[in-house]
Design a protein around this nucleic acid. Structure first.
Lengths: 146, 146
DNA sequence: ACAAATTACTTCGTGCCACGAACAATCACA
DNA sequence: TGTGATTGTTCGTGGCACGAAGTAATTTGT
């Protein structure tokens, strides 16, 4: 009889927590979860639809609508790609960039709070291991590298 | 300039990973994410709609449809509550229980794999800290307690 | 150079998910 | 016995995601 939670269970619960935080912070910025994810993937550079959809793990047809709605809300624009006339590049508008930053900052703060009760050394070890585990995962949420 | 990933970024990426695994395993069991989550919350006992909706973090009106669809697929049944004639209890059917177990087992295996590359002591420490962080989170994914 | 295959994106139809407002039935209690 | 709360549902709206099919532009093979 171990009293410790299984790893799988812990991971699922953590995911549940983070998902809810993500959605909540998103609502505060008037963003849906999908929109927030998209903005995070756009960061500062502009990206073609194909690359963006593979980053987000979506079919291209799904992304079309997502970009449509985000564009209608003025978060994003489609730009012609001079290199390839079929291609479209998606870029943040100033409003989209502002929304992204608010979202990013607030979410980062809330997530950090989650670990704040841990003793510093345990927290550092945890973060470090976390980094190893997600090393090859898509960078859906970059650190403030600016 | 730290070269380590920020904690927030790591948490988001991990969540992204687990979410995708969750969805993928769900698809393999012919379950949507929402359905899988519901089945996990039902586990073995039957629960009223109100309690279930608060476990899942959904409005009651959202749950109605979710249960409807799951019932149509034969995963779940609505039972009368003898104590309260307004109330409805949701319970797993044998098919629902089977689906849940397949889902649970497969997901657990895939999640454990995620940590398998870590050295044992680091993994144990990580799991333990994980347990602390999610201590007060809803038990959306119980360990095999059977 | 030119037909064929590939790539980039969109459209359309379908289904699921989630919300809030409004509603009926039942319960609790004072 | 009422009055107020609680349980669950319906309805309307909007977002999300998929796959199949279609259009336009680029690349490849010969």
């Amino acid at each position: 009889m171990k009293e410790t939670l299984g790893a799988a269970s812990g991971l699922v619960r953590l995911t549940f927590l983070v998902q809810n935080l993500y959605a909540e912070v998103g609502r505060g910025c008037d963003l849906t979860t999908a929109q927030a994810q998209m903005l995070c993937s756009l960061a500062d550079r502009s990206i073609g639809m194909a690359e963006l959809s593979s980053m987000l793990g979506l079919e291209r047809s799904s992304l079309t609508g997502l970009v449509d709605r985000a564009q209608q809300r003025g978060l994003v624009v489609r730009e012609d790609d001079p290199q390839d006339r079929r291609a479209v590049k998606v870029a943040l508008t100033p409003a989209g960039s502002a929304a992204l930053h608010r979202f990013h900052d607030e979410l980062t703060e809330r997530l950090d709070q989650l670990l704040q009760e841990l003793p510093a050394t345990e927290r550092d070890r945890f973060t470090k291991t976390l980094g190893r585990v997600v090393a090859d995962a898509p960078a859906v949420f970059a650190d403030a590298g600016s």
